[in-house]
Design a protein around this nucleic acid. Structure first.
Lengths: 237, 237
DNA sequence: CTCAGATAGTGACATAACGACACTTATTCT
DNA sequence: AGAATAAGTGTCGTTATGTCACTATCTGAG
């Protein structure tokens, strides 16, 4: 039998394949706290629990996994997230009551202001402070997904400025430093922090921000695709 | 309807879900070259092409994705790989002629000697020098998977000694350094290399190895689970 | 048996990045 | 005007690394 005959007769629905979904841990920084976007499930299983934005692949419109992720995120936020990164896949027979299930988990970052209005208009979506999710009823193994994504973001904060995507397009260095301090849960030396960033040339200066009090701070934005660029050392202080 | 009624009536086979598989890029170091284990496909699609060891999840015996990976690898190598790490998932409608397909790609390392005999006895499995795979006919998008896994391993070589799992359990520092040099394709200063490792205390000294010529070299082996421990800086020389 | 060659491993100094912290500058509020 | 606050800099000591010469130990040729 040649390949085209094989494919003509092939029916992948004749196999019992695991369920496959994508899920995203969308982070933002709001009022000096890290938040995650959660969606209240209104269908079984785990009906009524909070879950990560995500779901099944639409084979008719998604050409790859990231298409699914961005589509699902846009439904909840109204905008395309500036940073989306695949983290890890979880698969097993115990994750989902419906049976063997695989989910490809992504992490994403967005500025709170960029989607504030749209999120408020979506009835089942809500930002939750990360420190509060232990008290929520979470669907499936999503608490694990969130915690592992949180840990990855903490690691990123040690050697990159990826977290900057959780801030508005323009931000000051003290604002960025504060975010890093939240992420790694430790105060940082401002001199060291500035040096690391200046040296790596990851940001561009875009003017001055008139401050409420104190000196005016320079506004920065991310240099094109500087996301993954690394500092030279780990942050230890 | 309550949840248990819902689950009773739920049939995941009524949906057309993508195909889902796992694949592993198993590396080893042999005769100063990096090799990858490939398997010759004897079924459609891409019959006759070389592919990565992997395949479908067996929902009756695998409880998680890594179970599938280790099971498939053991079929080809005869032993359990000492290092297995999930890298990335690939999904899309163009990867596999059978339709929308997702694969969870793992990277694994093993000592050549640990599985030399068994691999030789498996008719469809063979080690291929990494530099030669461009000339092979590879199935699906497996060339991409291999290249991205190769790049990840290169990165690991810059800040960890994970590559040591591609060596026998006991090895000398010059052997490890040579492997890193192969991975990052650049000569390294032995003094710097030794210092980085000694400082991080990633290895334990286990005796002396009588050399063919030159001074006898100390044998080392990995400290328990020191795999991911990092050096403090990137290797630049 | 001895010495050359090869390889393992060390000593030592210069450089670069970082930690720490005091200091300067600019703005707001009283 | 002066205190308070916050942005941003100067500077010094420490640490890790780059570089490279040097020592030590083995093999093998003559």
């Amino acid at each position: 039998m040649n390949e085209s005959d094989f494919l003509k007769n092939y029916d992948k629905r004749s196999f019992d394949t695991p369920l496959i979904t994508v899920d995203s841990v969308l982070f933002t920084c709001h009022e000096q706290r890290l938040h995650v976007l959660l969606v209240k499930r209104d269908e079984h299983p785990d009906k009524g629990c909070w879950s990560l934005p995500g779901g099944f692949i639409d084979q008719t419109i998604d050409t790859c996994l990231e298409d699914t992720v961005r589509r699902k995120l846009k439904q909840k936020t109204g905008v395309d997230a500036p940073y989306v990164e695949q983290l890890k896949s979880y698969g097993g027979n115990a994750r989902d009551k419906r049976g063997w299930a695989v989910t490809v988990c992504y992490s994403a970052l967005i500025a709170f202001q960029a989607c504030e209005a749209h999120v408020a208009s979506v009835s089942d979506a809500r930002w939750h402070p990360l420190d509060d999710i232990a008290e929520l009823a979470l669907a499936f193994d999503h608490e694990t997904l969130i915690m592992e994504a949180r840990e990855r973001l903490r690691q990123k904060a040690l050697y990159s400025i990826v977290p900057a995507y959780a801030l508005p397009e323009q931000f000051t260095l003290p604002e960025l430093q504060k975010l890093h301090e939240i992420l790694i849960d430790k105060p940082l030396q401002k001199k060291s922090f500035r040096r690391r960033i200046e040296q790596a040339e990851l940001l561009i200066d875009t003017g001055l921000k008139r401050s409420e009090s104190g000196r005016p701070a320079s506004l920065y934005s991310l240099k094109a695709d500087s996301a993954e660029f690394t500092f030279l050392r780990n942050l230890e202080n």
